[in-house]
């Protein structure tokens, strides 16, 4: 690890005052610290968000669930009142990662194989920052890219409670990240199908959403041909195999929702 300054401010305003090109925010650190260990990043300053109490917590609020950016995966797994979200959080990494890693850190990083992007997009959440609110569909822009601007800090993520939802993940057997993860949800904004792991960035599967809107059954997905074009291909899974998994997992999510 290269050397850096470390700051742990107590308020968001203080954090905002510290941010510049050479600053990196430290949330749970479960991705950032391994990256620093490999000397793949050389920030001048690390700004640790852990002292800001307001960034933490799972808060049910009517038909919404607000989750502070610094809330750990373990807390979400234990406390989230949306079962599909709790189950998704409970399947991230391993127990130790879940005890440290946070929702804000995960979505700000936007790893293409991370689980949370599927929840945020699939459940049609809103990402709140110190400056604005960003709709899920606008938040994840590309591989490791988000709509966050310089100096913008995620404060919490608000999930509308879905009528029903299920997340099915096919693990990379080595890293335990998602080779493909599919969130299917019946939301007030309609049926949503969000896919992570398969492409460079989380995406919605419009054809499946339309089919499920017409008939919420696994059979409705049967005749959809998921294209492998643009999907990831690596030593663990080809694009063609990922395309197959998208369909298989989506069907299984529907089966799970339908009980």
């Amino acid at each position: 690890m290269y050397e850096f300054d470390y700051k742990r401010p107590g308020t968001i305003d203080e954090v905002a005052g510290l941010l510049n090109d050479d600053t990196v925010l430290l949330a749970g650190g479960q991705t950032l610290i391994p990256t620093l260990k490999q000397r793949l990043a050389q920030p001048e300053t690390l700004v640790d968000l852990s002292a800001i109490e307001s960034l933490r917590g799972v808060c049910p609020d009517g038909d919404q669930l607000a989750i502070g950016a610094m809330t750990t995966h373990a807390e979400v797994a234990n406390k989230a009142t949306i079962p599909a979200l709790a189950s998704l959080a409970g399947g991230i990494g391993d127990a130790q990662v879940r005890n440290r890693g946070t929702i804000g850190g995960s979505i700000a990083n936007n790893d293409p194989a991370a689980d949370y992007p599927a929840a945020v997009v699939g459940l049609n959440a809103v990402v709140n920052t110190n400056r604005r609110t960003i709709a899920a569909d606008d938040f994840f822009t590309d591989l490791f890219e988000t709509a966050l601007e310089e100096g913008e800090i995620i404060t919490n993520v608000t999930f509308p409670k879905p009528e029903a939802a299920a997340y099915i993940k096919f693990d990379n057997p080595a890293s335990r990240y998602a080779i493909v993860g599919v969130m299917v949800a019946k939301t007030s904004a309609g049926i949503r199908v969000a896919v992570t792991g398969a492409g460079p960035c989380v995406f919605r599967q419009a054809e499946m959403e339309a089919a499920l809107s017409a008939s919420f059954t696994p059979q409705a997905l049967e005749n959809i041909a998921v294209s492998a074009d643009g999907l990831n291909s690596d030593i663990h899974a080809s694009a063609e195999y990922r395309a197959n998994l998208i369909k298989v997992l989506a069907k299984r999510a529907v089966v799970q929702i339908n009980g």
Binding site: Q30, I33, P34, K37, A74, D94, Q96, V97, N99, S175
Partner: peptide, 22 residues
Amino acid sequence: TSQCGACVVHVNGNSAKSCTML
């Protein structure tokens, strides 16, 4: 790469990988 778990300790009562914490 934070996977093997040989470094696990308890931090405030929760298991954590001490190789993935400053």
